[in-house]
């Protein structure tokens, strides 16, 4: 068995020294090595998106990424978003809009959405469908997930708007 070697992963702004084997996936390293179990594995084959994390600003499937290949990348997982009890607007929107039922797909959807909205603050509903189409949800029929992405987009835009802008008022 090839020996484990120490890899340094930068996750959520912290540095983790994790012992991995060459054939360990990033999903394994995050869950087992870093203890960050918020990232889920639903299929292990690229078809559900439950394992989505953000690497250098873009979503990646951690089940199809080797842990060693993530070295040097700026990784973000679902655990990075909330500040204490204050949810990230995307998280808040998934809860408020009912975009999460059983919740197993949720970390993946949330990370995909966070990355989407960082690059495209005002996606149309059609564009949202496109962007989330690599994530599979068996519970919601996606309707409320799309609602959530729209709400989050609105709140994030509002938060970026000048302080006296009326849309800064929290919605709903």
């Amino acid at each position: 068995m090839p020996n484990k070697s120490l890899v340094t992963l930068r996750v959520n702004g912290a540095t983790y020294e994790v012992a991995v084997r060459p054939h360990d996936t990033l999903a394994q390293a995050l869950r087992e090595g870093c203890g960050l179990t918020g990232t889920k594995v639903g299929c292990d084959l690229g078809t559900c998106g439950c394992c989505t994390v953000i690497a250098d600003g873009r979503p990646v499937l951690s089940c199809l990424t080797l842990a060693l290949e993530a070295e040097g990348k700026d990784l973000r997982t679902i655990e990075s978003l909330a500040r204490g009890a204050e949810l990230h607007p995307v998280q808040e929107a998934f809860a408020t809009c009912g975009g999460s039922q059983c919740g197993y797909c949720t970390p993946g959807f949330v990370m995909t959405t966070v990355s989407l909205l960082e690059h495209e603050p005002s996606p149309s509903r059609e564009r949202i469908k496109d962007a989330i189409s690599g994530n599979l949800c068996r519970c919601t029929g996606y309707v409320k997930i799309i609602d959530a992405v729209e709400r989050a987009a609105g709140r994030l835009r509002a938060a970026r708007a000048p302080a006296d802008h009326p849309s800064l008022q929290p919605q709903g």
Partner: peptide, 8 residues
């Protein structure tokens, strides 16, 4: 329980 689910 949604807060648990959206935070991982």
């Amino acid at each position: 329980d949604s807060w648990k689910k959206v935070t991982g």
